[in-house]
Design a protein around this nucleic acid. Structure first.
Length: 533
DNA sequence: AAAAAAC
């Protein structure tokens, strides 16, 4: 089967050819003809199956007829994360070279102005994360009743992230008869319910998982002690010893550990960036762009980067932590070994991780091979450490506080700093002592940093100064902000329907009586009888 | 044992 047989327009076909593709993937082959006839589609497909082009290409063909009106987007694509939304936008740029479609990206963490301006001019394609989309809607900047095609991508992930009420609300806002293209890797009952109520006579398309990871990714386990510094030590060894390391993603379970591991690698002279959801959006984008481009060799990331991100040619994945949910393991190692290339995934395992490793091996249906000695699992010790609520990192920090500077004292100039490690792929020569002492002008010019995690202030917020030739924004946490009502959402259960009666935005006359000061007790969540008992 | 997403 060739792309030319699917019914795409000449302009779209030319762009596909220019991008170097001739053969559609199975999901593209099945979805595109149905999408072009205007039918609703349920696509059951993982990322990495070519799903994005499966909806982007027919949408572009269909959009050739007609024109966008101000504030009334013609199509809407919903994505669970900002990075995925940006990635879809790139697809429209790549395949839209022969068209003049207007595309707008509505995601959080960036200014409203540009987004507002684009909406006012009229957009053919709106790509959004649910929160920012609804925000624009509530501010009256956006009308959804002109939407001709709605795409809901990664629906099961949206479910995991608690977006389903938002999705339902958005679906209800689109009053005009429209086509819906719905994608999900799995179909749990909650997702089935959505498709039952919002799709009309859908075609169901299911494609096999992309080639089993075992075929293209060599998976190994490495032993480490429970203490965080031991794990960092093992990680450095793995990176140095890695064969053919072009670039690598290092996954951590927690954002604070992303920051800590990033700093540790940075101090040891590696060319490294970090990515997690508490970083400001420009840093997230710049880091990802640099990693894609190859300017950054190592990327330390939370699971924000585990699913869906298309970064070709990642040669290695290191799991600094064993993922708590076995499916996340599959997503993480799926970042390497893509497009028929080979990859290596190495997971650092401590005596505490027996349960989680067992779940992973059960899920993938094989026992993973150890590099060197197997770890001796210690379920009892793991239970105790958990009960005490202390991780290795906490204890280490408690002890090092006397030294004043956390890990900075022990790591680069400790015993292992004396024997300068040989350089490996992804490693830069360490800065000279003079450089290290040099005044950090660029850093001082930055606004004060606010750590997201109060117990790890240095590790979360610090970064190296920006140097000439850098095109990576420094890692910086978002500015502190006053607590919002929605921050307590999890304690209260589902958030209330956002309607005109909620004064989320100051768009009416000010309330007279309380003045500016709202007493703290009014902001506390309402305690119901059930919660109190 | 987590992460993600709106000012």
């Amino acid at each position: 089967m060739q792309f030319s047989e699917l019914g795409l327009s000449d302009k779209v076909l030319a762009a596909v050819e220019a991008a170097g593709y001739t053969q559609p993937t199975p999901i593209q082959e099945q979805a595109i003809p149905h999408a072009l006839t205007g039918r609703d589609i349920i696509g059951i497909a993982q990322t990495g199956t070519g799903k994005t082009a499966g909806f982007v290409l027919p949408m572009m063909t269909l959009l050739e007829k007609g024109r966008a009106r101000a504030r009334m987007p013609r199509t809407l694509i919903l994505e669970p994360t900002r990075e995925l939304a940006a990635q879809v936008e790139e697809n429209f740029n790549k395949y839209g070279i022969n068209q003049k479609l207007t595309v707008a990206l509505l995601i959080g963490g960036v200014s409203f102005d540009d987004q507002d301006r684009k909406l006012d001019r009229g957009v053919d394609v709106l790509i959004a994360t649910p929160g920012r989309l609804l925000d624009h809607f509530e501010r009256g900047k956006l009308l959804l009743n002109g939407v001709e095609i709605l795409v809901i991508d990664e629906a099961d992930r949206m479910l995991d992230m608690g977006f389903i009420p938002d999705i339902e609300r958005i679906c209800k806002l689109i009053t005009k008869k429209h086509q819906t293209l719905f994608f999900s890797a799995t179909m749990p009952p909650e997702i089935q319910r959505i498709t039952d109520s919002f799709l009309t006579d859908p075609v169901k398309i299911e494609v096999a998982k992309p080639a089993t990871t075992a075929k293209t990714v060599a998976q190994r386990l490495a032993t480490a002690g429970v203490e965080a510094h031991e794990k960092r030590d093992v990680l450095r060894g793995l990176i140095r010893d890695a064969e053919d390391l072009k670039n690598a993603i290092v996954f951590c379970n927690r954002k604070r550990d992303v920051a800590i591991v990033y700093r540790s690698l940075e101090r040891h002279g590696f060319n490294v960036g970090a990515l997690h959801g508490d970083m400001d959006q420009s840093a997230r984008m710049a880091t990802l762009a640099a990693f894609r481009k190859g300017t950054l060799t190592l990327l330390v990331a939370s699971d924000v980067a585990a699913r869906g991100l298309d970064i070709p040619e990642v040669s290695h994945v290191f799991n600094f932590d064993v993922p708590i949910h076995a499916e996340d393991y599959v997503h993480r190692i799926g970042r390497t070994g893509r497009a028929g290339r080979t990859g290596t995934a190495i997971t650092i395992v401590t005596p505490d991780d027996g349960k989680f490793l067992g779940a992973i091996e059960k899920l993938i249906g094989e026992d993973l091979e150890w590099l060197g000695d197997e770890v001796t699992f210690d379920p009892e010790g793991a239970r105790k450490r958990r009960a005490r609520g202390k991780t290795g990192e906490d204890r280490e920090r408690g002890g090092s506080r006397a030294r004043g500077r956390g890990e900075s004292r022990s790591e680069p100039r400790g015993e292992d700093g004396e024997r300068r490690p040989r350089r490996a792929a992804g490693e830069r020569p360490a800065r000279s002592a003079d450089e290290a002492r040099a005044p950090r002008g660029a850093e001082e010019a930055r606004p004060p940093r606010a750590p997201a995690e109060p117990r790890a202030p240095r590790a979360a917020a610090e970064s190296r100064p920006v140097r000439a030739g850098d095109d990576v924004a420094p890692i910086r946490q978002e500015e502190p902000r006053a607590p919002r009502r929605d921050d307590r959402r999890d304690e209260r259960g589902p958030r209330p329907e956002r309607g005109r009666h909620h004064r989320d935005h100051d768009d009416g006359p000010a309330v007279v009586g309380l003045g500016d000061h709202v007493p703290a007790f009014l902001l506390r969540p309402v305690r119901t009888v059930k919660q109190a008992s």
